[in-house]
């Protein structure tokens, strides 16, 4: 087929583009991803028994805000990564800022803690399972967002894959906050982040293959 014939083929019956379609796909991925994580959390782990009291603590909301703002930052970056020719640039700081603030809070608390109590504060009671559980809960959001972005045209598949993973990990963390009893920033600024980085790493590895177009 000559190039001219291909052009005729492409130009004939090329219907108007529905401009809201990408937004709808992302919205669906967010709802399915968060819904799936909440469901997995409820079935596999259960709400923390003292949830009614916990939600009255400001730290409960700081912790959840941490996860939610990373998810929102990753979504913002994705909405640009999925379109050719748009740079993320300084918008990456929307992801970096909550991570940095949580570390700052953790460092401040650790500085005011006796030396031999610091390690127990970081490890908490659940450090062995925390990251793995978050990575498990991230599966629905990972699949849903991968599917949404595959319908777009990402030209940096490795970065895009990693960002999809980070989004999924952060979404899973929002759900995990309803189960997890650990409230100390030295704990969650480390282990929640580790949990989010597992799917991000998976995304970086499979991105170039799965997001090819």
């Amino acid at each position: 087929m000559k190039t001219d014939d291909l052009i005729s083929l492409l130009a004939s019956e090329a219907p108007a583009i529905d401009r809201r379609q990408p937004t709808r796909r992302y919205a669906l991925a967010v709802v399915a991803g968060l819904g799936g994580a909440l469901l997995l959390m409820a079935v596999l782990l259960g709400l923390r028994p003292d949830i009614a009291e916990a939600i009255r603590l400001p730290m409960f909301w700081w912790r959840m805000g941490y996860a939610a703002s990373i998810a929102a930052g990753a979504l913002w970056a994705l909405s640009r990564l999925a379109r050719p020719g748009l740079r993320v640039g300084p918008r990456w700081s929307a992801i970096a800022l909550p991570i940095f603030l949580a570390w700052l809070a953790a460092a401040t608390i650790l500085a005011g803690t006796l030396a031999d109590e610091r390690i127990p504060l970081v490890l908490g009671h659940t450090w062995k399972v925390c990251a793995i559980l978050i990575a498990t809960l991230s599966t629905p959001a990972f699949v849903a967002m991968l599917y949404a972005v595959r319908g777009m045209a990402p030209t940096r598949p490795r970065t895009t894959g990693a960002t999809i993973g980070l989004f999924a990990g952060a979404t899973a963390t929002v759900a995990y906050c309803l189960h997890c009893p650990e409230m100390a920033p030295p704990f969650w600024s480390v282990w929640y982040l580790t949990g989010m980085l597992i799917p991000a790493l998976v995304g970086a590895v499979i991105g170039p293959r799965v997001l090819r177009w």
Partner: peptide, 15 residues
């Protein structure tokens, strides 16, 4: 030709 097809298939990603 491949790029033209890619441009066509990615039309909805233009802002």
């Amino acid at each position: 030709q491949e790029t033209l097809l890619a441009v066509h298939n990615a039309r909805h990603t233009y802002r």
